[in-house]
Amino acid sequence: MKKVFGRPKSLTTEKTIYCPGCGHGIAHRLIAEVIDELKIREKTIGIAPVGCAVLAYDYWNFDVTEAAHGRPPAVATGIKRVHPDKIVFTYQGDGDIAAIGTAEIVHAANRGENITVIFINNAVYGMTKGQMAPTTILNQKTTTTRKGRNSQSDGYPIKVCELLSSLEGTTYLERVALDSVPHILKSKQAIKKSFRNQLEKKGFSLVELLSPCPINWGLSPQESLRWIKEKMTLTFPLGVVKDKT
């Protein structure tokens, strides 16, 4: 009998502790499938962030470390300089990449480090229970913006791909979403491309995934998917922001 579907070798059998409807589990699996398909499991080093995905090393079946909040791009730089032929990727949330770690991502991108960055944009601080993130959209209610994010007092949502696109060191920047099956398949293609770029030594690649966090959005899993499509993508339009390959 031919096996048509199974667990990727790059995933362990550990059950994830994510909330129902969370996007992290989907993103983990897509990365694992891509790593299997590119046959790079035995030469990949992943960096888990401080955030809901901090336990990613329990779920991935390859070498993984965990960096201080916001510092994965600097840690990736150190690893990649030691092992230029290994595949190094960071997995970061919006607070990690666009607040506390803004300097690290900008400069790793600007140096054109040949790494892959998977950026999970869920518009909140998931792990600390739903405070405003740098990517919280205007009028979105969070535990620190009870009446909704107000640009006057809270500033504007940061568009990471667009921000990085002006840097000459960046090669490939694409925004995708985990809100529907076609979009999930599209996300996988983008992730695959970002890893392939690294294999081909093409330079810095980042894939931003708009990802549901139902528990902190105060929505059901289904409503969350709709919210991504109807609200989030207005601020964060999907598509390739930059592709030099």
Binding site: A67, R71, A74, V75, G78, V82, A103
Partner: peptide, 22 residues
């Protein structure tokens, strides 16, 4: 490898990466 980092935070975390890489 020599990198003039963007900050001391980045420098020590690059050390962290290089060190964990052996």
């Amino acid at each position: 490898t020599f990198i003039q980092s963007e900050s001391e935070l980045a420098a020590i975390n690059m050390v962290f990466g290089a060190s964990l890489a052996g």
